[in-house]
Design a protein around this nucleic acid. Structure first.
Length: 961
RNA sequence: GCAGGGGUAGUCAAGCACGGCCAACGACGCGGGACUUAAGAUCCCGUCCUAAGUGGUUCGUGGGUUCAAAUCCCACCCCCUGCACCA
């Protein structure tokens, strides 16, 4: 029968499903509980996503076969705005999106329903479960499926937040959020789920410097925004654009002059901002204002680089360190005509000199002046070069700069430090304020411009809490965290993790915040403790646990053991036995053994996953392991249609077969590196499996009537070695090593076995057992093929539920004997290749007794001199003359380099002559030549090439003719 | 910038934590051979240089430690990822 993956998948998946292999209930076995971080509902997934999911199934299958009671539940993460966004696309009839749905095989009648976000969640959850996870042959406990918008799940999350609140871990404080005036909070990131432009924008903190001045008898403040508050000491003048109309805005008790967009943005961040009038930039020209920080009166001068959309549209001038300021001044100073136009005294303007304030490594006292000359910047209109110059000076100044003697009490202080202190001081004195702005324009999906809004009563989870952090760090130290580098970094990650805004407003899917339902709990915060919810979801899904009974008291009892089942059951209208049963489930299955997820979770999900367990649950229920895996990436770039990998997963499955894909994930690279999706490679895995399938069938046919052979013991020993290696590799989660042993090394051994004339042992007993164990070794990785082979061998029950092989007997002498033979053949091959001889006769010489004796003595630690002396005492050996010390010396060098394994090979007693002599017929067949074997110390031997003298232990001398 | 990861023979990719079967797993590609009427598949051999085999030079670059370094230490160059309300 030909290898047909699709047929095997159908057959075995149906049988597994019928036998309910994935369903797990407590019993007296030891348990193993593992999940992969549930995926967000974000449309169709691609083949890369299946990598981590597959690892989870492989490990769970392995642990099941090792005798553990395995729980592997799955769910989907529906919280947030993604499904809302997707639904909107359907609602609007977005062509690209509809085409995408159809391309992925979305049934036509489903499409209109997907205008509802909840339908989106339902639909894609079903796609993930049925088209991906079940198609991949996972043995998950499907009864426990949940999504984060299930009512039961939401009850659970509300309980979790009440606990955090009780523990004092929720805090309220102001927060500056990216915000659309029409849609509310939006996420600004390059994936642009919320926005149509500006995904790379960063939130910038500006210091607003307030310059007091007199404007027609009224006290007002012209306000400049700066990212470099420490440069106030170098202020020489103030810039405004004479062509721009600024506004007067009432801010608290004061009147500020800023650009109109700035006033509008400011209104989102400060209470009671009101525009009360306008001022033309032209009217400001030449007026004096009081520079904060230095309390100097400086003139307002005209410039063309004041963008009303950036900062406040007004700029303070520090020509020593800001290239644009220097060029502005430079332009003005050589244009008296321009000065006069704005009623300025050209002589006075000319008199303005940059003031050195910062000593920067690699730069003179006036870096801005210097860099303008260096880069040949001619005027303030050379925007591109100025931008580049600014970045360079800013970077150098920030990291290496030191404030100089013109900076008063800050003299001698690094810029990095002075920046904060100057800012704080100015703000404290009322001479400055803080203002957040985006580094580039961001446009919401709805078309509105996104601003930064101050939210005064934002709730945070207090992850920065030192006690909590410390406890979590301790917990992490005791965990099994992979990869190793991540284990080492975890304490750092936990300490770095700051308070997190955990709720948001707007029309998002999610759980209402229990302390104030105007808020919705945001997606990261509602997916931290959830593995424990899988222990309950089963009862919710089968109807035995009504959502109404899922009160805080209920969770306190089942998760924390608080209260008594009996009275509580009465209050909740439940059977006490159900409560007790759930409580038992919790104590049996928890803690979670492994949480597996992509590397993107390392600084976001995993730390909060751990911290929430630490905060809420007793130490006995804290998680035991984390497994972060890397990605499957497209060739050269992202997974994409043109380069492969973007095809719908079911389509890929039909092309390659599940087992080939699973083997690809396990064998093409370490889990902790990015691996390229390579269709050709997957195809090769497929044909490899086909070959194994065929080989298996052929071997099985030959079992009947097989006879014992000298290599039977060798093969048994090899199997033991492989089994041992596979177990070790899997304990270390080294899937590549494990699959190499099962799919490469073992079949190679079996081929060698048949080549050497092995046919199966007595009545096929030896090879038959090996084939059965081989099928079991394959089961975690390629379960469909493995089941088929297992069945082909006439075995009872599922391979999936059989016991994983354990290492059997090892026969070191048998392994060493074959090794000697193979290495000798390798040397023969080499000689034949180099000489180009087609051999008629091959003569082999095994090492003489005295060389063996010398080697043994050296390995026992005897020194070279006494070994030689000992040998020379024998008159027969003495005849060898100089050859003796020569050999002993070179052997001594070899001995020094031997490691444990090599010592074993060289150290064991092996009758080399006997081994080679027994293989004479085999060798004669292989080389189509007569093969003769001699002992090098046999006086009657034939030695036409005078080669026998080269024979060394484990290294027979060879002569071909 | 901060934090993290990485640079290995034609390609992909192991090894590095515990220095020594490392000229460096494995796969692919390529060359040769066997089988076959032929092709394909399969199997065997080879694929840094040299060579009747145990030799030489290699693991981003430059130093260092050691009897011994791809593996440990230092410096440098280059590439990638994350930096938060986004899953």
């Amino acid at each position: 029968m030909a290898y047909d993956p699709a047929e095997l998948e159908r057959k075995w998946q149906r049988r597994w499903e019928e036998a309910r292999l994935g369903e797990a209930e407590p019993d007296d076995r030891e348990k193993f509980f593992m999940i992969f971080a549930y995926p967000g509902v974000s449309g169709y997934l691609h083949v890369g996503h299946m990598r981590g999911y597959t690892y989870t199934d492989v490990l769970c299958r392995y642990m099941r076969m090792r005798g553990y009671n395995v729980l592997f539940p799955v769910g989907t993460h529906a919280t947030g705005n993604v499904s809302v966004t997707l639904a909107k696309k359907v609602e609007k009839g977005d062509e690209r999106w509809l085409e995408y749905l159809r391309y992925n095989g979305c049934p036509e009648e489903e499409i209109p329903k997907l205008a509802d976000p909840k339908e989106v969640v339902r639909f894609f959850s079903s796609v993930y479960v049925n088209d991906y996870w079940k198609r991949f042959g996972f043995l998950a406990d499907w009864r426990r499926f949940t999504t984060t918008i299930d009512p039961g799940y939401q009850r659970f999350i509300q309980w979790q937040f009440l606990k955090l609140h009780e523990l004092g871990l929720l805090v309220q404080k102001p927060y500056y959020a990216t915000f659309c005036p029409a849609d509310g909070p939006v996420a600004v990131d390059p994936s642009e789920t919320d926005i149509s432009r500006g995904g790379n924008a960063e939130k910038m903190e500006y210091t607003l410097l307030k310059f007091r001045m007199d404007l027609d008898g009224e006290e007002v403040f012209v306000v400049a925004a700066t990212l470099r508050p420490e440069t106030v000491f170098g202020q020489t003048n103030f810039w405004a654009d004479p062509e721009v109309e600024y506004v007067k805005a009432r801010v608290g008790e004061e009147i500020w002059i800023v650009s109109r967009p700035a006033a509008e943005k400011l209104a989102f961040q400060k209470g009671g901002v009101e525009i009360v009038g306008t001022v033309s930039g032209r009217d400001l020209m030449g007026k004096e204002c009081l520079a904060p920080g230095v309390d100097r009166w400086i003139p307002i001068l005209p410039s063309r680089f004041c963008d009303p959309n950036v900062g406040t549209g007004l700029v303070t001038s520090v020509p020593s360190d800001a290239p644009a300021d220097w060029m502005g001044l430079y332009d003005l100073q050589r244009d008296p005509e321009l000065c006069r136009r704005y009623g300025l005294d050209p002589e006075r303007v000319k008199a303005i000199q940059p003031i050195p304030i910062i000593k920067t490594k690699g730069w003179g006292p006036l870096p801005a002046v210097e860099i303008c000359e260096k880069m040949g910047i001619e005027s303030q209109d050379d925007e591109e070069k100025l931008e580049e110059a600014k970045k360079e000076i800013y970077k150098a100044g920030f990291h290496t700069g030191v404030m100089n003697e013109n900076c008063g009490e800050y003299a001698g202080m690094p810029v990095e430090k002075a920046k904060e202190l100057v800012k704080e001081r100015l703000v404290a004195e009322g001479k400055a304020d803080i203002f957040y702005d985006l580094s580039e324009e961001v446009i919401c999906r709805c078309g509105e411009r996104v601003v930064i809004k101050r939210i005064d009563d934002q709730w945070f989870i207090n992850y920065s809490n030192p006690d909590w952090t410390e406890k979590s760090v301790d917990a992490a130290r005791g965990m099994d965290i992979l990869p190793r580098e991540y284990y080492d970094n975890m304490p750092g990650v936990l300490e770095w993790f700051q308070d997190r805004a955990c709720v948001r407003m707007g029309s998002w899917l999610g759980t209402p915040f229990p302390l104030d339902d105007k808020w919705t709990i945001e997606p990261i915060s509602d997916s931290t403790l959830y593995p424990i919810y899988y222990l309950i979801s089963k009862y919710v899904n089968d109807g035995s646990l009504p959502v109404d009974a899922m009160t805080p008291e209920f969770f306190d009892y089942v998760f924390l053991g608080r209260g008594e089942a009996e009275p509580l059951a009465g209050r909740l209208g439940l059977d006490a036995s159900l409560l007790e049963r759930i409580r038992k489930d919790v104590l049996y299955w928890y803690p979670l053994d492994i949480n597996l997820g992509g590397k993107e979770h390392m600084t976001v999900h995993f730390p909060v996953f751990l911290m929430n367990h630490v905060a809420i649950l007793p130490g006995t229920l804290w998680p035991r392991g984390i497994f972060a895996h890397w990605y499957i990436v497209g060739k050269g770039s992202k997974i994409s249609k043109s380069k492969g990998g973007a095809e719908p997963i079911p389509y890929a499955v039909s092309r390659f077969g599940v087992d080939a894909m699973r083997l690809f994930y396990c064998n093409s690279g370490s889990p902790f590196v990015d691996v390229e999706w390579d269709e050709d490679l997957v195809v090769r895995y497929k044909s490899r499996l086909e070959r194994l399938y065929n080989l298996f069938g052929e071997l099985k046919e030959g079992l009947e009537g097989a006879a014992p052979s000298p290599v039977d013991r060798w093969l048994e020993s090899r199997l033991s070695t492989v089994v041992e290696g596979v177990i070790r590799a899997l304990e270390e989660r080294n899937f590549r090593q494990a699959t190499n042993l099962v799919y490469v090394d073992l079949p190679a051994d079996i081929r060698w076995y048949t080549r050497r004339g092995g046919s199966g042992g007595d009545g096929g007993e030896v090879l038959g057992r090996i084939l059965r164990e081989w099928a079991l070794l394959m089961t975690p990785f390629t379960p469909h093929l493995a089941e088929e082979l297992w069945e082909m061998m006439g075995s009872e029950g599922f391979a999936s539920t059989a016991s994983f092989p354990t290492p059997g007997e090892r026969y070191p002498d048998a392994e060493a004997g074959e090794r000697l033979l193979r290495e000798t053949m390798k040397d023969m091959d080499q000689i034949l290749r180099v000489t180009g001889i087609t051999p008629r006769r091959i003569l082999l010489y095994t090492a003489p007794g005295w060389k063996h004796r010398a080697l043994h003595e050296l390995m026992e630690g005897k020194d070279v001199g006494s070994v030689i002396k000992g040998l020379m005492a024998d008159p027969e050996v003495r005849k060898m003359g100089k050859a003796v010390p020569a050999y002993v010396q070179s052997a001594a060098k070899d001995v020094k380099k031997m490691d444990e394994a090599l010592r074993e090979y060289y150290g064991m007693s092996l009758d080399e002559y006997e081994i080679l002599a027994a293989a004479r017929e085999f060798l004669a067949g292989e080389y189509k030549a007569e093969v003769l074997v001699f002992k090098a110390d046999d006086p009657g031997m034939e030695d036409p090439g005078n080669k026998a003298r080269h024979a060394a232990p484990r290294r027979p001398a060879i002569y071909v003719e």
